[in-house]
Each structure stands twice: as structure tokens, then as C-alpha cells.
């Protein structure tokens, strides 16, 4: 009998060990690190709140947070809009939907590095496809990645292109749970398409909206590889994302304590943003 009691613990043992080593320890250790200065090759040095004081005055960090929020502010609504539109159409009784769905999903499975290298060329100033198209339409060319005001929106467009397929599928799944009877009774009352969309579809797919919001917001806070490959954080630090800055401080300059401090602060910021989103969506539907 004793052995039987032990079995579940044996089964979860790998999880517990892994949790202790790779989750609990790092979390605790990062809370230790925030009070220390440490360049990894010298002994750790206690600095009290020194890292936080430095963080408060670090314009690059706050700019990176603003940049990341700006990215999210463009990326997330764009994503929602495009994903819902495509999902609505894919939910219509048409042919070849499977093929379209598969095509839209393609960028989702391809590595972000591929997408980034590819779009770096599309965004090229002299000979990029996008600017050639603009020239063809006799419009002025755009410094997609070199104009400080446009670089981040460009990256947001690219990120939307890469991820929107996933969210189309999520919305499609959500739409398919809406009972058809609801639309039919609305039709009897003479509701317009917009009214049906606003008062039936939106409330019914509300959980999906929240999900997509939260997922793409958290995804937005992880922005790294795109600016790392395309811009290095420039021009004028306008595409410096928070993770890129943490990477730079941690793995370029080896300020482990300071980088950990930024990680903790960023976690708090993410938490606040997600909670606000949740509250907002719940209140407005």
C-alpha cells in the first residue's frame, strides 16, 4: 500500500525537480540579483536599491518600454481587425476554404528569423519591393526601417503579417461556437448585418477576443528578434524593445543585476497591462 501511495509522487517527480531548478530557483535568484551588482566574473556586490534608482533614470529603458507599448498599440488592434475580418469571411459557406486557411497559416509556422530577413529586403529603401511599388504608383518612397517615425510601425506590420494566421484560426473556432439560431431570430426582427455583428457575434466571441488580446500583448512584450536582425534597435533607439535592451545590458555588458532588475520591472508592467485589458474587455461587453 505504501508503494501505491508513492506512485503519484514518483510520477510528478520530474516536474517538481524541474520546477525547483528552472523556475523556483531563477525566480528567487532574480529577486536576489536585483539588489546586487554583478558582472559574472567578479564577486557579487550588494547595492541595495541601487539598480532601481539607476533604472528610474535610465532613459533608454523607459524608451524601450514606450517603444514596446507603441508596438503593441499598433500591432494588437491591427491584428484583431484583420483576424476578425478574415475569420468572418472564412466562416462563410465558400469553396477552397481549407486552402486559404492553410496559406494564411504559413507564416505562423515559419521561423521569425526567415520572416525578418525576408521583410528586411521588402522594406529596403533603394530597391525594396514596397518602395518599388510606391515608385510605380508615382508615390514618394518611404524609409520603412530608416525613418525614425516609421521603423516601429513597419515592424508592427511585419509582425502582424507573421502572426495573423494563428488568430484567424482562433477566431474561426470562436465563430463556429455561435449558435445559428441567434442569427435567425435576429433576422426575424429585421436586424442589419452590423447590428447582428455588434450584438450577437462580438459578445459571443468575447472570450476569444480577450484571449487574442492577451496572447498578442504578451507576444508583443517579447519583441526581440525583429529589431535585433533588422535595425539593431535604431534609428534613434526607436525600435529598441525591452527584451533587446535587457539582452544588451545582460549579455553584452554583463550587468546581471541590472538586467535582472529590468526583467522584474518588465514583468510587473506586463501584469498591469494584462489586468487592465481584462478589466476593460469584461466591462465593455
Amino acid at each position: 500500500m505504501g508503494k501505491k501511495k508513492l506512485t503519484p509522487y514518483l510520477l510528478i517527480a520530474p516536474y517538481i525537480i524541474h520546477f525547483g531548478l528552472f523556475v523556483a530557483f531563477p525566480v528567487v535568484f532574480s529577486l536576489v540579483l536585483v539588489f546586487h551588482r554583478w558582472n559574472i566574473i567578479s564577486p557579487m556586490e550588494y547595492v541595495g536599491p541601487g539598480n532601481f534608482i539607476r533604472l528610474l533614470g535610465d532613459t533608454f529603458f523607459w524608451q524601450s518600454v514606450l517603444n514596446t507599448l507603441y508596438f503593441i498599440l499598433i500591432h494588437v488592434p491591427l491584428q484583431l481587425l484583420i483576424a476578425i475580418s478574415f475569420a468572418l469571411i472564412l466562416n462563410l459557406p465558400l469553396r477552397m476554404l481549407g486552402v486559404f486557411r492553410a496559406i494564411y497559416f504559413l507564416p505562423v509556422v515559419v521561423s521569425g528569423v526567415v520572416v525578418t530577413i525576408l521583410w528586411q529586403q521588402l522594406f529596403g529603401y533603394e530597391n525594396g519591393i514596397l518602395n518599388r511599388l510606391l515608385t510605380y504608383l508615382t508615390l514618394p518612397r518611404i524609409g520603412w526601417l530608416t525613418d525614425p517615425d516609421i521603423a516601429m510601425p513597419s515592424i508592427a506590420i511585419m509582425a502582424t503579417w507573421k502572426n495573423v494566421g494563428l488568430y484567424i484560426i482562433l477566431f474561426l473556432t470562436g465563430l463556429q461556437t455561435v449558435p445559428v439560431q441567434l442569427y435567425e431570430s435576429a433576422d426575424l426582427e429585421g436586424a442589419t448585418a452590423w447590428q447582428k455583428f455588434r450584438h450577437i457575434t462580438i459578445p459571443m466571441i468575447n472570450p476569444t477576443i480577450l484571449l487574442v488580446l492577451v496572447l498578442s500583448t504578451i507576444g508583443g512584450f517579447s519583441l526581440f528578434i525583429e529589431p535585433y536582425v533588422m535595425t539593431g534597435g535604431g534609428p534613434l533607439s526607436r525600435t529598441l524593445s525591452s527584451v533587446l535592451y535587457i539582452y544588451k545590458q545582460g549579455f553584452f555588458f554583463y550587468h546581471m543585476g541590472y538586467a535582472a532588475t529590468m526583467g522584474v520591472t518588465l514583468t510587473a508592467i506586463i501584469l498591469v497591462v494584462v489586468i487592465i485589458q481584462k478589466k476593460y474587455v469584461e466591462r465593455n461587453t
Binding site: 533608454f60 525614425p148 534609428p235 534613434l236
Partner: peptide
């Protein structure tokens, strides 16, 4: 470098 970009390039 950061100031260089602000001043020299832009």
C-alpha cells in the same frame, strides 16, 4: 554611439 547617431546622422 547613441549620441553620434542623434547628432551626426540625424
Amino acid at each position: 554611439s547613441a549620441e553620434y547617431e542623434q547628432c551626426v546622422v540625424y
